[in-house]
Simulated scan of single mutants.
Amino acid sequence: MDFDYQWLLLALPAAFFFGWVASRLDLRQLKRDDAASPQAYFKGLNLLLNEQQDKAIDAFIEAVQHDPQAADLHFALGNLFRRRGEYERAIRVHQHLLARGDLQREARERAQHALAQDFMKAGLFDRAEEAFKALEGTAFATDARLALLSLYERSRNWHPAIDVARQLESGGTGSFSQRMAHHWCEIAQEADARGRDEEAQQALDRAREAAPQAARPLVMQGQRLLRQQRHAGAMQVWDELMALQPAAFSLVAKDYAQCAQILGQVQEARTRLAALYERAPSVAVLSAMNSLQDDPAQRRQAIMTHIAQQPSLSAAQDLIRERLLTHVPLDEPEIERLQQALATAAKPLQRYRCAACGFESQHHFWQCPGCHGWDTYPPRRLEEH
């Protein structure tokens, strides 16, 4: 049977026509989808800028439905869920992204980082730890280590925290020596609580190695020696603290003075405390110094000098205590210094605070200058609450 080429001549135009019609229908559908997706996306952005998060989420969900392959839309939606505290929904969005086989490497790493943040915010620390560890060797490695450090500190997992801090320091992120010293001190504190003296001492030694200038290891070392009745050793450690961190010495000034009295080193300790007070004056150092002073007149004069320079309630309290101990009435200059200290301490409390926004002022307002609310200022100052 011979093939009739006439049918071929008729079929070719027909096939071309139907193909053209089908392509036009596909193009129209594609254009409609493309138009719907950006419109929903920009609508979501506009709502987000206007702080209408609920409506923005609905718009982004609509945009994702129109274009389920758009990773940026998923990221925007997931971040919105996290900001609203809807961590389970944020986790599902980012897990859906990670499950896609066509996701590029950069987007995959970004999704992994977002998922780790979701777990962290949701309090799922075990899963957050695994997710952050999976970012090792990626562009988010440093951010992941910093997050891991925070996670370990919150869960009081000090040894892993030290390891991560070392990695950050060796990676050039910055110095973490002070932070590692605190970690070792926390380990020492826990060991002391369990009665593991040797472990506690080793941890304090490591803390001092990590940060030789840090105050906390010296404070804790002296306190351990004091508990062991090793007063001379405690004073020696705190003498080092006095030289390295004079401001932190006020934390142990009272104990230092007591050790000096026990050891019969009152004069030497008072001399060192006086020199320290000149460098870093504080009420704690002043009280310790006065506890080693037998002359009531000199004690009162030291308190008067301090109040003149740094008025405070604690110094005023010391002055009143001296009056009660010695039964010597306060003279006029002392009363003036006492009034000065009380006025300085009371000033921050002699303010009115708006009940609506917390705006504080020395004057009462019927309309708050901060939130412009009416009758939001209670008629009583803070000190009266």
Rank of each mutant, 00 (worst) to 15 (best):
H113F: 14
L218F: 03
P378Q: 10
A275S: 10
Y256A: 01
L103W: 06
D72R: 12
T173L: 06
F365N: 11
D197K: 14
A139Y: 10
L9C: 10
A274V: 03
R216F: 04
L263A: 04
Q267T: 13
S155P: 01
G233T: 08
A248W: 11
R299T: 05
A215H: 04
A181K: 08
A211Y: 06
C357N: 01
G233M: 08
W238T: 09
Q65P: 03
E62C: 04
A248Q: 15
E332P: 05
D205C: 07
L77V: 07
I303Y: 11
S170H: 11
P378A: 08
A71R: 05
A215W: 04
S250L: 07
E130A: 11
F75E: 10
E268Q: 14
N290G: 02
D163T: 10
A275F: 05
A36R: 14
C259F: 04
Q95E: 15
D375N: 14
R321Y: 11
L80D: 05
N50F: 09
A193C: 02
M235T: 02
L124G: 07
A161I: 03
H385C: 07
Q309T: 11
Q6S: 15
G174Y: 01
E86A: 09
L225K: 13
V64W: 07
P348K: 12
L148T: 00
H231A: 11
D375F: 09
R32P: 05
A122T: 02
W184T: 05
L12E: 08
